[in-house]
Design a protein around this nucleic acid. Structure first.
Lengths: 213, 213
DNA sequence: GGATATTTGTATGATACGTTACAAAAATAG
DNA sequence: CTATTTTTGTAACGTATCATACAAATATCC
């Protein structure tokens, strides 16, 4: 059982690849991010990655499979960011703000102006007709819910919440705030504005004023 | 100044139109709703409306203008539904639930399965690159915010809120709940599930349990 | 009825789409 | 060096795209 298959260069027989699959996936993601799935042509992906169509197909299968890879990669990055923010050893309100700030950092990571959430900008359109994409979106949303809910349960154990507070209900509000920020970012809202939205939401959720910071 | 121009049939000189522009716009909306803006071809719109390409262009200009009409019409319907729900003479929690239920009625109004929010399913993809669409989305989002905020201000005047409650912050949460429901609907969530989300959000927002009803 | 105005239906243009065929290129194996 | 293997680059295939040209159709005006 020695010698995996998709490892980097054990031995390579023919002409060497001119591309880095991981870098190409990143570039493809950028392209989808701008024009969506249906609105993005393979030509534009080829231009962005510097790869030829045959190489793209050899590396990723086809447009749909390539997009699914990009979507999975985005969820991975995005969910990890949320999870790590919430895992910080901070008071509840601060941890929530860290999570929203992490999302904002992703939404405003484009070179030009804001591009908002990748899922909203590419997956949500297709999700109604495309089962694979819909499944991915649904799974991602559940993960966000679960992460927030876990943090609120911890908060209750730590006495950060009023006795009557319901972690599930608060998680719904926190998820909703995340979704709201994602939508507003796509609509061109500025970062400071979205941070205000997050601040107001957190202060209402936690029942305490949150400093602008 | 007698005799408007776009009125219905003062006199009509040539061959009569075979289509009803309003009905066609509705059909076009249905088509965009399913496959998005970029994913919808004029052929499919022609098929859905029963109109020929030249008639479509004569009636609406081009694909982009047609879509903008559809988007405006959707905002009109959707915002009116929210506004009317919130204007009902009901306790705050009930009024909020009415607003969310009104949205759900739209999201689940398709003949087949759920199709979620039209804006999320068509406009949000294009909004980053298309100024006109982005402007429309931004305006709609602001309208939702304003409607909720107005209702919360009324609630404070009526003494439905705790003295310290901040109408703006609560409006952010209510808007966010609306956005969240819209996203989840696109991801295939069932109606009952979304109503639960709304119920939890409302109970957390109002600080009181909300009956399932 | 004849002239005029407007819409319909079809056919088509020019381009863009996703995908693949195929020869040249560039590596290793012996 | 020759044979073999893999990737590249180009060109192309068939289809779909948005949009329009044009004749036939159908109405009103006089």
């Amino acid at each position: 059982m020695a010698g995996k298959k998709h490892e980097t260069a054990p031995v390579r027989r023919g002409r060497p690849r001119a591309y880095d699959a991981e870098a190409a996936l990143k570039q493809a993601t950028e392209t989808f991010w701008k024009t969506g799935y249906s609105g993005t042509s393979l030509d534009s992906i080829a231009a962005a990655t510097g790869m030829n169509p045959p190489s793209l197909y050899a590396a990723f299968g086809n447009k749909h499979a390539l997009y699914l890879d990009a979507l999975a990669r985005y969820w991975e990055i995005s969910l990890t960011a949320t999870r790590e923010a919430l895992a910080q050893d901070r008071p509840l309100a601060e941890a929530l703000m860290l999570a929203f700030d992490a999302a904002l950092s992703i939404y405003f990571s484009g070179k030009g102006s804001a591009r908002g959430c990748f899922v909203l900008g590419t997956a949500v359109v297709e999700s109604v007709e495309d089962v694979a994409i819909r499944t991915s979106v649904a799974r991602g949303l559940r993960a966000i819910d679960a992460d927030f809910e876990a943090r609120f349960r911890t908060a209750r154990e730590r006495g950060e919440l009023k006795p009557g507070a319901d972690p599930e209900a608060l998680a719904v509000l926190a998820s909703a705030t995340m979704h709201s920020i994602a939508i507003r970012a796509r609509a061109g809202a500025r970062r400071a504005e979205l941070r205000e939205v997050a601040r107001k939401a957190v202060s209402a959720i936690c029942g305490c004023p949150v400093e602008a910071n």
